[in-house]
């Protein structure tokens, strides 16, 4: 379990991370979403014992990141957003080096390395030099490296950045497998839909501040004040005239060559149901009336925009 209390980071007058309070349960996959410079990597660097916070603290499985950094490192597998590899080192030697760095005995490493390479689909590359691997393969190898000491918690900073669609899918599959293995995973991305699929909980960071937290649907409900409603009708004019009278409705648009409309509706489920009921009572020839799934990117933009204005 990860417990973060008032964690902040300042560089002079610049605040990279505003006091952050967070609790992540064991086995949970937590996604940090935010634009570049939102504070994701700063948070991860602090948790990975690479950076001292200005204030606050955090514990990983009970180990304090400031008082017990070595304990934290044992519990933690860290994959940074940018990382380099050593020239002239083969994939299996790369893992062997880090295994030795974690104090794993040679005999145990010998058994462990093939298993890890298999997990990240790199068994066929075990004798290849690391610097000659593709970016996707390097990312997977780095993920295998972060698992070498069997950590309970994984911190993955933009693991899919710069990967082609196929490599992204492969990475996602591996992460799902890790989730099934019961690992607590903290993962970041600046693309919300990328995380939505695999994360149990999402936190949106903007300008160093956690502006939203919860499941994807909860965040949508929490932050979207207006719903997008789509209505298919036989009589466009009558339908538009009816909805235009309602003060809760704005931005009516005509779709599908005049057979459907879409508008923004301000209100909860009860108001939405009342609107439909009134339309039927007034004999508006409605074929279908449905709430549109709002685009996750739009949610993200809306949230970050709100913070910017406030």
């Amino acid at each position: 379990m990860i417990e973060i209390k008032g964690l902040s980071k300042k560089y002079g007058k610049f605040t990279a991370l505003q006091p952050l309070d967070l609790q992540i349960d064991a086995g949970c996959v937590f996604g940090f979403v935010g634009q570049n410079g939102a504070g994701k990597s700063t948070t991860f660097s602090i948790l990975a014992t690479l950076l001292a916070p200005t204030s606050g603290t955090a514990t990983i499985n009970g180990a304090d990141i400031i008082k017990q950094p070595k304990e934290v490192r044992k519990q933690l597998g860290y994959m940074p957003d940018f990382f380099g590899v050593y020239d002239q080192l083969k994939a299996e030697e790369y893992l062997d080096f880090y295994g030795a760095s974690y104090g794993i005995p040679a005999a145990q490493r010998e058994k462990l390395i093939p298993q890890l390479l298999e997990l990240v689909n790199l068994s066929h590359k075990r004798k290849d030099y690391v610097d000659l691997l593709s970016r996707g393969m390097k990312q997977r190898l780095c993920l295998a490296r972060s698992l070498i000491h069997d950590p309970a918690v994984l911190i993955l900073d933009e693991p899919a950045s710069g990967l082609d669609p196929r490599a992204r899918i492969e990475m996602r599959e591996i992460l799902k497998e890790l989730k099934n293995m019961g690992k607590t995973i903290l993962i970041s991305s600046h693309i919300l839909p990328e995380l939505a699929e695999m994360c149990d909980v999402i936190g949106i960071l903007d300008q160093g501040k956690l502006v939203a937290q919860g499941t994807v649907s909860a965040i949508q409900q929490q932050l979207q004040s207006e719903k997008i409603i789509s209505v298919k009708t036989f009589d466009m004019q009558k339908t538009i005239a009816f909805f235009e009278e309602n003060p809760r409705i704005t931005k009516i648009e005509v779709l599908e060559e005049g057979k459907a409309i879409q508008f923004l509706f301000k209100g909860g489920d009860e108001e939405q149901q009342a609107l439909l009921k009134t339309a039927i009572q007034k004999e508006i020839p409605i074929i279908s009336f449905s709430e549109m799934e709002s685009n996750l990117e739009d949610v993200f933009m809306e949230i970050t925009k709100e913070v910017e204005f406030s």
Partner: peptide, 14 residues
């Protein structure tokens, strides 16, 4: 500069 130090520092090596 090679961006290998941060990974090395997260290991349990002193």
């Amino acid at each position: 500069e090679r961006q290998t130090l941060s990974i090395l520092l997260t290991t349990t090596q002193s």
